[in-house]
Design a protein around this nucleic acid. Sequence first.
DNA 1: ATGAAATGCAACTATTTGGTTGCGTACCCT
DNA 2: AGGGTACGCAACCAAATAGTTGCATTTCAT
Lengths: 113, 113
Amino acid sequence: MLTPNARTADQSDAAPLFAALGDETRLALVDRLCAGGPLSIARLTAGSTVTRQAITKHLQILAAVGLVHDRWHGRERIWELDTARLDEARRRLDQISQQWDEALNRLKRFVED
Amino acid sequence: MLTPNARTADQSDAAPLFAALGDETRLALVDRLCAGGPLSIARLTAGSTVTRQAITKHLQILAAVGLVHDRWHGRERIWELDTARLDEARRRLDQISQQWDEALNRLKRFVED
DNA sequence: ATGAAATGCAACTATTTGGTTGCGTACCCT
DNA sequence: AGGGTACGCAACCAAATAGTTGCATTTCAT
């Protein structure tokens, strides 16, 4: 429809995603799941400075924005990156950065006139 | 050098950047500065639900990660996107998403074996 | 069957965060 | 000169956040 006030269509709920990533511990968790594949809470806790319960909470926050999901395997709760959602998130990041890029180019053209 | 444990080189301080973007109000500010060019605090406050002081604080948070910077013009404090840093941030986002992408592909290959 | 391992749940705490109000100051304009 | 406009600074507040500890539950392995 391209209404005059179109702005920010898809990035409307980008803030919670950024917020979920805006923590060192959580970013490290994403990192480890990225590099190491599915891991149990105990595994993820080992090497971390914080307690298992803290790790659990962080994982739940990541799950709330769909970046990870869990699966039970015996007495272990295995967490893994949600590849579909993660890819979606990646595309959203690209999209936002592209929006910024376009806007910046417009600004540059404006300044250079 | 490609050491065995290379991971996360440049995304070390990505968390504060994500955190700065992880707030609706701040994301909206970035948005407005993106679309509308440099604006004063009063201008940025108009149309927002929160007070001028709140806006000021948010701008300072964005400034702390280098996304915006300010410049005095008479009695007005003009805020604008820091294009250089923003571009850097954009590239960092791309880089992280690419890292994720590669890791996910590795995971997929691993699963499909 | 029993003990250790992996986890959940709940209560509690301290710090950070997002926001406010009140008041003072600098600047512009008529 | 004097009033309105744009802003800073500081104190304050409520809610959210990141973390803890303590205890109960399930599951595995011997």
